[in-house]
Every structure is written in structure tokens, then in C-alpha cells.
């Protein structure tokens, strides 16, 4: 018995399991197949699939993780996982924080666009990932019009009570960076006039911001 056990250990040790490479990521099964595999309860399947997807190239030690992944295939995985578990935040977090954090600009943009498209399906719950996408567009891609597009979508569609004011005001700060001071001034004025700002500290902050903007505009003239 001991000999057989040693042989078993030897056979297993001779064939160690290597972590999956990025290029090994297979295509995700069809939505109907996944629905059948979920046996009527798709949420656990979605969670396990997401952790499985994350395992690809996650600990490669490379300075550019996920770079080698096929992003069309990756996007198909993320989309299907979101369909299985629409309330889950993990796929959008992974898209905006992990898979958008690659040197390739095209891949970065693909993930940001994915987050943007998915945001509209549940803006009040998914705004934070689009806010992160706006930050990447502004600082990572230096693409202020793109950042403004994302910030404008948050400002317009994420209207729930849980959405913080800073997220809805992102567009104003991006407009300032774009030197579109007049538009930013009108937006801040609109916020104050409509009574959207109730917290005294926030109101004071925006009023000061408005004054600063007006001073900057006068200086430019």
C-alpha cells in the first residue's frame, strides 16, 4: 500500500499543474448552454466563472498583466457573466480596474467602451465603474472628451440617492480641465439654483468654485 501511495505521489509530482496562460482562454459557451449549466440558479455559476476568468494570467508576474488576452473573447466572457448575474459588480470592476490597466491603448479603450455600454443597463448601481473609466480616460489616455462623455452619462443617468455628488459633478471638473469654463460655470450655477445641493459644506465648496471660475474667466478676457 505504501509503495502504491509513493507511486501515486510520484506520478502526480511528475505532472505538476501549471497556471493557465492568457492565450489558453477558451471561448465562453453559448448563453443557452450556460443557462442550462446553471440548473435554474445562475448566480453561483456566474461567480465561479468570474473567478475562473480572473485566474487567466492573473499571477503571471508580468508587469503588463492581461496583455496577452484576446480582448474580444474576454469581452464575450464578461458580457455573458453579466447576463447570468446582472446585479453582480465583479465583471465591471474587472473590466475597469484590471483589464483596462494594460499598456495597449486599443485594449484599454475597448474595456472602457464595454463599461460605458453596460452602465446604461443599471446606471444607479454601475456608476462607480464608469467613474473609474472616466478617470482612466482623463489620466491614462489623456482623452478629455472621452472622460467628459463618461462623466456626462453619470451626471444624466445615475440619479439614485446613493450616487454621491462628486460622481455627478465629475463633468464640471473635466470641463474645467478642458478650459470650457463657461459651460462649467453654467452647470455649477444650475446645481445651486435648482437646490440640488443640500449639504452646507458642499454648497459652500461649489459657491467658492463658481467664484474661482468667474475670476479665471475674467482673467482670460
Amino acid at each position: 500500500m505504501i509503495l502504491a501511495l509513493m507511486l501515486q505521489f510520484g506520478v502526480r509530482s511528475a505532472n505538476p499543474l501549471s497556471p493557465p496562460n492568457a492565450t489558453d482562454l477558451p471561448p465562453i459557451p453559448e448563453a443557452s448552454t450556460l443557462a442550462a449549466l446553471g440548473f435554474g440558479d445562475p448566480v453561483p455559476l456566474a461567480k465561479v466563472l468570474m473567478l475562473y476568468l480572473q485566474a487567466f494570467d492573473y499571477q503571471s508576474g508580468d508587469r503588463a498583466p492581461y496583455q496577452a488576452l484576446d480582448y474580444d473573447r474576454l469581452q464575450a466572457w464578461l458580457t455573458r457573466i453579466l447576463r447570468l448575474d446582472p446585479n453582480g459588480q465583479y465583471p465591471l470592476m474587472a473590466a475597469s480596474r484590471l483589464y483596462a490597466d494594460v499598456p495597449s491603448e486599443a485594449k484599454k479603450r475597448q474595456m472602457l467602451e464595454f463599461v460605458y455600454q453596460e452602465f446604461f443597463k443599471d446606471p444607479d448601481r454601475r456608476w462607480q465603474w464608469l467613474a473609474h473609466a472616466a478617470a482612466i480616460a482623463k489620466h491614462g489616455l489623456k482623452d478629455l472628451p472621452l472622460a467628459r462623455k463618461y462623466a456626462a452619462a453619470i451626471q444624466k443617468y445615475a440619479v439614485g440617492e446613493d450616487v454621491p455628488l462628486w460622481a455627478r459633478q465629475m463633468e464640471i471638473f473635466i470641463l474645467e480641465d478642458m478650459n470650457e469654463l463657461e459651460t462649467a460655470r453654467i452647470m455649477i450655477g444650475g446645481y445651486i439654483e435648482k437646490g440640488l445641493i443640500r449639504h452646507p459644506g458642499e454648497l459652500r465648496f461649489l459657491e467658492n468654485r463658481l467664484k474661482e471660475l468667474e475670476t479665471r474667466m475674467k482673467e482670460q478676457k
Partner: peptide, 14 residues
């Protein structure tokens, strides 16, 4: 252990 967010949700689901 390998989850970055939704740790409790993943535990419940599994």
C-alpha cells in the same frame, strides 16, 4: 481568497 470584491456574495453563492 482570490476575490477582489463581493467576497461575502461569492461565499454565499458558492
Amino acid at each position: 481568497q482570490v476575490a477582489i470584491i463581493e467576497v461575502a456574495q461569492i461565499q454565499v453563492a458558492i
